[in-house]
Design a protein around this nucleic acid. Structure first.
Lengths: 215, 215, 215, 215
DNA sequence: CATGAATGAGAGTTCATTCAT
DNA sequence: AATGAATGAACTCTCATTCAT
């Protein structure tokens, strides 16, 4: 019953490191995240981080792998419950939104990584991202074939979804602060729930994609 | 007539620093950009950078100010040439796209900055971003009032534009590489021109915004 | 009959550690040899090294003891077969040379150890070395008494033998490389066999020591 | 008149670092010499060492270059004063001996470096050593041509000189200690002056090399 | 006898920043 | 306005050694 952190358990220690690393990297970015601080947060000796992950980059890759697998799994899992392209698309967007808002490190890590091509990891991010993208494309294609979706540029539409949702997460506190100022009075959606935002995005994407929208 | 870089000119030196800093920060990110390398690239003594900009953060702010003013000016300037909301919206998107593709440090810096709220600068980015956003909102509002635009969440639509365009720039080389692999055959828009992309985005946004789209 | 390395045998494990430690120390030197790598090479857990040898220095001492005893034994053993000082001297040199060339870690370890007085071990190296030196002196003295050797400084002659032979071993690859260059054309004895070298050294020492050399 | 160490003078600081590095490397060996301690001894910030020498290896190379150039210069300089091979050989040995005994870091560094071929520096040591060796060979060859020297293996004779002299320097304190013990009574030449040792070595080498030795 | 987890100290190296000229 | 020398703090990473099982 003691709250003392359990030691001498490799799996636990490793997981503890990853968990804190996810947080740290998403807060500070790769370069500014210090292994010293990570060790402190993980309540472990600094050397243990290297014991488990070889070096900083190795840890970062493990972190990204973890995070990307999580979101991937969530979406694929959820996707199974639906079978029309419309429903699948809706599920895709809602699931991503939900995940992104409850795990805000994902948008942060993702945007950081995507914000330059000289990024820390190429390959893996790449592969993982492509699998999600492949699912997205597949949904679109089947929609087209069934005649309910227009033909669109999948990449652009994909980024319209992900880019928007990610930015809505990462700019949340910024938008909140903006809403408290009074000089420019515009709705920054500061108090929107993740569901509302997902609904907005979904609605917009449908307008882009569907052949007939009755207004 | 000598080709030697001119020294002993405060404004010139300062500008040279900024120019190289823009490049450096966008290539490496704030934390990984070193003042040493900046000085080397700028062909100046390291101490001069501090002489002109107080410290790294100060320089970074100057860089962001410069960059944001540039894009702001471009868009506002261009905006003057149009006077219907539809045209203004079109101009906004096309101008941003053109600028982003020809000045790829902008998307890089912007996404980096927006990818976390514990970012390096808050205030200024903020103000500058809001002015652009304010213009965007204004266009939308006037469109609504004239009855040609639906009522939408401006923040979400704004991010649909900026997020998408920025990501299309920063992921360009990634998408190119992806297109050269053959396992997953989907169009990543790797060879699209900036105009094509702008047109796509514009078309999509219009579908979202316009009251009637005849298909 | 299994080829698996046998475990749970103290003497064997200990010997395996020593064997690999000899190699490692002679390759990398004391400071750069890591206990981690030693354990890996010995196919044993790192903690076992400490279990058997207390600490790094203890292991190193064991290594040196082993190595010095080996050469000592070789020479003493061989010495028994001869009984004139001339023959004994010849045997001493030839045996040392043969051993040094077939066990090149000896020269490496020895020179490293002798190259500074703030060396890792003092005492033991010392004692062991002195026993060899004592035999050498004894041979010389008996030669003198029998009238066939001149009176010489034994220390200097001893180092002429050991220093030369050891350096010929440790510089072997260096001399090989030198012989492949063509700018300075001198014979570095790069392809001499250990026997040839021993013969050279022996011949030289005899010229130093013998009362009459007929040319 | 103040004894305070002068700062803000690049040449002085750099030289101070080299001087202390020579000492440190020869005392502790490459791997065990710490840049922290070097900085302390040099009364400079650790970063300055890297400012001047890029990295540890770079510093070490500078150290070796310095040391090897010194001995090379000494010997070449002295060599000019003589013109018969016998005299030149004598000068070579005496000068090396004198230098080695007054600059005991040289034998230490040299033996350490020569004690394994996976040494820190290859090239440079190499070139410098070869120039000395080339001079030595040249002396021998001219002696042969004049009919006063026998034909010998220059490499072996060279190491007989250098190996012996270097070992006599590095083992000095060891030999002193040995002479104070009483179990084995042999002359370790513990109290020999550098001149005496040089004379011994020279005499021996002459016996090896000269065609006629009248006893 | 054997293991893998854990540790603290210290290594080399880099960096933003300041000082003296 | 401009420079090169100097600094201290921080960083990633390694190592010998010990603990718990």
């Amino acid at each position: 019953m003691s709250k003392r952190i359990q030691k001498r358990d490799a799996t636990l220690s490793k997981q503890r490191i990853i968990t804190h690393a996810v947080e740290l990297f998403s807060q500070k970015g790769y370069a500014s995240a210090s292994m010293d601080e990570l060790a402190r947060r993980s309540d472990l000796n600094k050397a243990m981080v290297f014991y488990y992950f070889k070096n900083k980059k190795g840890l970062y890759e493990a972190v990204m792998r973890e995070v990307l697998l999580e979101i991937q799994k969530s979406i694929l899992e959820e996707n199974k419950n639906y079978n029309t392209p419309q429903e699948e698309l809706e599920s895709f967007i809602r699931t991503y939104a939900k995940f992104a808002f409850t795990h805000p490190y994902l948008p942060s890590l993702l945007l950081k990584e995507l914000s330059d091509s000289g990024a820390v990891i190429h390959e893996m991010l790449f592969i993982s991202m492509r699998q999600l993208f492949a699912l997205f494309c597949d949904i679109l294609k089947r929609g087209e074939e069934k005649g309910c979706f227009r033909e669109v540029q999948p990449m652009v539409v994909y980024f319209m979804v992900l880019g928007t949702l990610n930015l809505m997460v990462t700019t949340h506190s910024l938008r909140l602060k903006a809403s408290q100022l009074d000089d420019i009075k515009v709705d920054t959606c500061a108090n929107c729930s993740s569901e509302e935002i997902a609904a907005y995005v979904l609605d917009n994407i449908e307008r882009i994609i569907h052949k007939e929208i009755s207004q």
